[in-house]
Design a protein around this nucleic acid. Structure first.
Lengths: 336, 336
DNA sequence: TTGTATGCGTTATCAA
DNA sequence: TTGATAACGCATACAA
């Protein structure tokens, strides 16, 4: 038996219209009326029904954050920041996991599932921008992309300079005198753009350092997990000429890789240097501590919320792209 | 201009009632009518508006998962499982972080913020059950508690046997011959029950092993973070008679503690054995790998969803308490 | 089996 | 400044 506007109106002997005005903080209400209404609200413990409000206004106050897996530390840390930043501007956040499922990603994006359930979507995609472009994101729900870069400018976009980040990580290894620098994190299928860009950065840095990228030193990783990093690194170490350094496309891969190096009876960084990307807290406390490229998650979260609120306010404004800063964080795993 | 039931009805030349029946999968619809309606739906790309449906039915299809911090690996892993289990029964999950803020915890629980926004709440509380009892959880929103144990039976409850888990961890250290077993994870204020219970388990295990719990070997940790574990362990190691083993109330604390041991120039497990609770993936790959108590997150998630759906279906059924199984996982940090 | 009409609780339009 | 009332889109009681 919820208390409604009507109940409050009856109690305060005014119309629902007036109560609504008071609740909304509307200015044109006489002081006396306002007080009477507020007393009635308090007395009845009235709480506005957000669902009814949404039906009427078309706004839910909820944003969706779509990530592959919430328990990947990078995404968890990002989610935390996003939820906090959203709360500051009055939004709640619903988290959806795509779980590496293209079809699910498509459904979430087109909103086939949940029309009108959220006011905007923050989308950290696995698929290529091209594929995304074919998806015809649902109707016109405000959308901000996170993490991808080489996009055609149709959507708002908080980007990471993946090529540059990978370049910097690899260059750091080369500067430390490493000569056989492996890469872990390409994808089995060539349809993800983040790993492709990171591979480009790796290649460029090597060439700029006068080294030729060796395809035998590249390993795929389907899920950017510790387990995949372990497997890939273990494989690399069985080579006749094993690498003396490994650039991992994520810190999680790097954690697995470091473990594999130890299990192979070699040392990090003496035998094999390791560096990742993401700067997750785990790496700071690892043994040895993990060198990495820090991606400024707070910036990404803040900017994502700024973009989506702007987009919601002005659906037809031109798309904006911002790039999050990054920096190499040197720790023990590269002899730091 | 969204497509509504009425539009579909007009297109299919039937009433809205019939369209609604078809959408709901209602059986008493003639095959011919159904086909006509379905064609109209496809043609117009009709999508039911969940908000309107909610206003009408009073159900949102959304559950809230309330945790202290989503980027604590244990909660992230739990969230992942909860989201998946919820999806299987048609629920979406909204995550709220209380961030160690009692007031915020209270507000979320009483639903002062968001009446009617979700059908149920899965609540992993920091506060004591007693305090929770005084909170008068909002109206009668279905509520399932996660992780607490010594409750008065008013709420559904997926419990962890904290005393037993702590006992088992400590007993394992004692069985390995450790004689000065420290504990990290008590709280500055005595108002959280999980740490209190774990302290009880630690004490009991020591006494059963013929050792006297030494208060000088107990350290508080405000946030169960790596940083707090580090600080506490570093402090313990400066004692004139430092511990030869540390039981941490969470794996995250343990990760910090292990780092502190190394930074103090000592070794894990030779000088100091370390064990945690949670069995987060991070511990498996750590160096040394972390012994821990595994809490069966999938069980907790599955059971939480089962409890909340049952509660939603039958609000007045007696409260149910189930206890999640746990087991000690022995790895390198306690001598393998 | 299907159509008509009402109401969920709110905001917004139009008058007064 | 405030009141009466029509939507928002759906589900369902009641009729047919």
């Amino acid at each position: 038996m919820p208390v409604t506007l009507r109940d409050v109106a009856r109690q305060a002997k005014v119309s629902v219209r007036t109560v609504s005005n008071v609740v909304a903080g509307y200015t044109h209400v006489s002081e006396r009326t306002r007080r009477r209404v507020q007393e009635a609200i308090a007395e009845l413990d009235y709480r506005p029904n957000p669902v009814a409000r949404t039906l009427r206004t078309g706004r839910t106050g909820v944003l969706a954050l779509v990530v592959p897996e919430i328990d990947v530390p990078y995404f968890a840390e990002l989610a935390r920041e996003v939820i906090e930043a959203a709360a500051e501007v009055g939004y709640h956040v619903m988290i959806d996991q795509t779980g590496h499922d293209h079809e699910r990603e498509r459904r979430l994006l087109t909103g086939a599932d949940r029309t009108m359930l959220f006011d905007g979507v923050l989308f950290s995609p696995l698929v290529t921008p091209e594929e995304l472009g074919q998806m015809e994101p649902g109707g016109t729900i405000p959308l901000v992309l996170l993490g991808e870069h080489d996009f055609d400018g149709r959507y708002d976009h908080v980007a990471i300079d993946n090529v540059r980040a990978a370049y910097d990580a690899t260059a750091h290894l080369a500067a430390r005198g490493r000569r056989r620098i492996a890469a872990i994190g390409t994808q089995p299928a060539e349809d993800y753009s983040t790993p492709r860009q990171r591979t480009v950065g790796w290649e460029r840095a090597l060439r700029d350092a006068g080294q030729e990228p060796d395809p035998a030193l590249v390993r795929t990783a389907a899920h950017y997990s510790r387990a995949d990093g372990y497997t890939a690194a273990a494989d690399l170490l069985r080579l006749p000429e094993p690498p003396d350094a490994i650039f991992c496309y994520s810190d999680l891969l790097a954690m697995g890789a470091m473990r594999a190096v130890r299990d192979a009876g070699r040392g990090v960084p003496d035998d094999v240097a390791v560096i990742g990307i993401d700067n997750i807290d785990e790496g700071r406390y690892a043994n040895p501590s993990l060198s990495t490229v820090s991606l400024d998650t707070p910036f990404i979260a803040r900017e994502a919320i700024a973009r989506i609120t702007a987009r919601i306010a002005e659906p037809d404004a031109p798309a904006v792209e911002v790039t999050a800063p990054h920096e190499v964080v040197v720790r023990e795993s590269t002899g730091g």
